[in-house]
Amino acid sequence: MTTKQTNVGTMQAGYGQQRKIANIAAYIVLAVMVVIWIFPIVWLVLQSFNGKKGVSLNTFFPEVWTFDNYIKLFRQEGLSDPMDPNSPMVVLPLEKMTFPYGRWLLNTFIVAVFSCLISTLIILMVSYALSRLRFKSRKMLMNFGLILGMFPGFMSMAAIYNIMEIIGLGKQLFSLVIVYSSGAGLGYQIAKGFFDTIPRSLDEAAKIDGATRNQIFWIIILPLSKPIIVYTALTTFLGPWADYVFVSYFMKGDDEKFTVAMGLYEMLKPETMNEWFTVFCAGAVLIAVPITILFTIMQRFYVAGVTGGAVKG
């Protein structure tokens, strides 16, 4: 009996020590991983303050600190100043080429905001109809949507561009808004999952009180759905904000119509990269900061959205 007790005692002591070692190892592994994950981001931020042009290789920290890269983003350097009669008109050599970053930022913002508004409305409408209304073709529509969603997103890009040209929207920002929000009807699953969890008795009570389905949607269901509205709005805002594929095809060659994703990609073309690399970093930091803040805020919505389906099963 006694031997057994001591055995347990030493085992516990050994176990405690083991646990300490395991913990230290875990912290070390975590710390190393964080460094690996954060390193490129930190490098990007540091380079955006680098006063030396080109991709610097020898030093991790910039030798000359400057804020010029951020200023250069918004200044049409080398172009004649319309306010200044003495400023010369010059044909710019390649390294003096300018990129209208301010314009891109505005374009991106306009496209993202409008796509977000239209898409959110569409997603809420579709998911409410498929979740809480019962009608004959409901299952068929859902299956059809499932099949439609499996076509690669930009497979029909050329055809869509043809349509846009025919209806007079070729090379217009509005065509991007249409592209991003017309497919929104297919992304109803997560919002539908949310609507499914709101008790049906609410609808029935309202119906007894004489409310129409229209009133139930606007007055009862929507006010209860703030989390999913926020989630939907954020994801539909972030999609256009970071999309490259459609912009690159639709706005090819017209740099006044670029969004930031396309513009920054252009900056890193081999012929302009050396001159514009640090400016690219500044532009990237500017566009990443608001998104990072938004994303960190919506982290919990994201977790709920991603795992919702799995946990339910």
Partner: peptide, 10 residues
């Protein structure tokens, strides 16, 4: 999460 918050193209 911060690293995955920065847009992928960046």
């Amino acid at each position: 999460v911060i690293t995955s918050a920065v847009p992928q193209f960046v």
